[in-house]
Structures are given as structure tokens and as C-alpha cells.
Computed example of a mutant assay.
Amino acid sequence: MSRLDAHHHVRRPASAPPSATGPGPRRRVHEWLDAPGMAPLRRDFTLADLAPVALAGGIDPTVPVQVLPDIHETAEFLMPATAGDVVAGVVSWADLASNDLAGTLHALRAAPGGDHLVCLGHLVQGEPDWGRLNRPTVRRGLRTVAQAGLTYDVLVVPHQLLAVVTAVRELPELTFVLDHLSKPPIARGELQPWASLIRELAALTNLFCKLSGMVTEAEWHRWSVAALRPYADVLLDAFGPERVMLGSDWPVCPLAASYEEVVDVAEALPAELTAAERSHVFAVTAERAYGLGERDGRGRAGDGGPVGLDR
């Protein structure tokens, strides 16, 4: 069975030592790497670094996800996608509040690697105004994303989910992807109110979710499949395997588990799924949500409508 990693990163942090990997995106500051315990991540991580660990985990191809909200990073982030067949599509960033977002997207698609642009995203979790998705200027930008035939990735924490519910409900023309299950409090073993909000979101068919980022939300050195299972069960029961996709969150995941362990956990958690349902979690859902394999030179092929269960 083909297996696809729908969420990983590549980066060249400014705090890293000089790279021996050759030319690539310029170094930029990742402030979150200054937090305690982040030292192992203060170095370069490239597609060349990912290739052997992904191969060992039986993964091919992948979807890299941009982290920094920097349009210059976006252009540089897309370029490596042109090398080989490793990258199926790219989740990048652009300013949703820009008055010329459509022009920006056109320029990105015309640039090297632009045909791999399938989705935009933003780390809403770090925003002081966690209701930013519902600002009028951002709403206008999200409609532009939909008109461009792109998907939108959103990373929030549980207390921000109500804002996501509103945005997803009021923008049925746009396909959304929720990252990392919205980071439930796995380390504390709490399910509510996260589980209820997830079920409310799952009722909206223009939203998909990533089975990703779980091991780093658990206790890094004491996690177990049993501790993760209740959260995976809620997700799969609410969304169904047709709307859930695997993501490794590499290179963050090795803080708690190796790449292979993350893939093994994803195999173990949906124990009751049929082979066809597993194929959705491990490949088909991501292909569908991001329109992978449907690019027509303009990025994700589409008619401006959402990729919902009714299509």
C-alpha cells in the first residue's frame, strides 16, 4: 500500500551552524526554537535528511509544510519541490489580508516549484487574536484561496476551535485541513472539551484532519499507544477514515519518537479499519484533500469548490 506523509517540515534556522548541504533557502529566525528542550532542532533539516528516514518508514511521497509567515520563505520553500518525485505538494504561506492575494498566488504559481503549491496555511495557535480567521480581511483572503482552487491548513489549540467552527461553516466553498488534531492535552489525559469540539467540526464536510503531532503532545519520554488511542478513536469516529490523513510532523517528532515509530503508531491506532479504510488514512485522504495528482500547471486543480464527501 502506498503511504504518504501529509505533514513534515524543512528548515534552515538562523541559529544553526553553517550548512554543508549546499545552496538552499536563506537562514531565518525560528523564535520557538529558543524554548527549553528544542536544542536538537537547532540545525538544518532538508529533504535529503528526510529521504532515508521516510524510506525506512515506508513513506513516499510527502507534503512539506511551511512554518514561517514570510513570503520570501514561501518562494524559497517551493523551489526544492522541483527536484525529483519526493514532494507531492507543498503547504505554503501568503498574507490572507493582502489586497493583492490573487496576484501573489499567480506569481508563486509561475515561479520555480509553483506547480506544487496545493495549500496555504498559518499557525493561528501563536496569534494573540485567535479569532483572526473571522476578521473581514482574512475572510476575503480565504475566499480568494478557494477561488484559486487551493486548500487551507489551520493549526490551532483546543480553545481556538470555536473560531475554526465558525470559519469552516461560513466558508463552505473552501476545503480546510486541521493540523495535529488541534493539539489535544494528551499529556494530561483530558478529552473534554476537545472531543466535543472535534465532533462539532467533523459535522462540516469541507474539513479534513491530520493524524499527526500526537507523540509531542504526550509525555515525550513516557508516551504509549494506549495513551494516544482515545484521541485517535475520537478523531476517526468523528471524521471517518475518508477524512483523516497521516502526518509525521518530522523533524519535530524525534523529540519524542523516531520517524519509524510515528508511522508504526499510526498503523497501530486504527486497529479496526479495513484495508480500504487504511488506504485512505495513509494516502487517499491527503490526495483528495490537496488535489494531489490533479495539478494542471496552476497548482491544485479544481473548480473553486471544496473537496467534500459529496464530490
Rank of each mutant, 00 (worst) to 15 (best):
T62M: 02
V265N: 13
D310I: 05
T62K: 00
L96S: 00
L4R: 03
L50Q: 11
L235E: 04
S15W: 09
P112F: 03
V262A: 15
L33I: 07
A301P: 07
R143N: 10
P36C: 04
G121P: 08
N134T: 12
Q125G: 07
A83T: 13
H122P: 00
A94F: 06
D5G: 01
V86Y: 11
P69G: 03
I59W: 00
R3A: 13
F282R: 06
A227L: 06
G240V: 08
V124E: 08
I186V: 15
L133E: 10
L4Q: 04
R300W: 03
L78C: 04
A81N: 03
E173S: 13
A48L: 00
A20Y: 01
G141D: 12
G24I: 05
V157A: 12
R27I: 03
G141P: 09
A35S: 14
V156A: 13
D49T: 07
V234Y: 13
D249R: 04
R288V: 03
T144P: 02
V154T: 12
D85P: 05
I71R: 15
R3V: 06
G126I: 05
S224Q: 05
T216N: 11
E200W: 03
V10G: 01
H8S: 02
H7Q: 10
R28V: 05
S2I: 07
V225D: 11
H106Q: 12
N134F: 09
V118K: 15
A148F: 08
M214E: 06
L171H: 02
L68Q: 13
E260Y: 01
T21P: 01
F77D: 08
L108G: 03
G213W: 00
S196Q: 14
D129A: 08
V281Q: 09
A268S: 14
P136V: 04
A107N: 08
D49H: 12
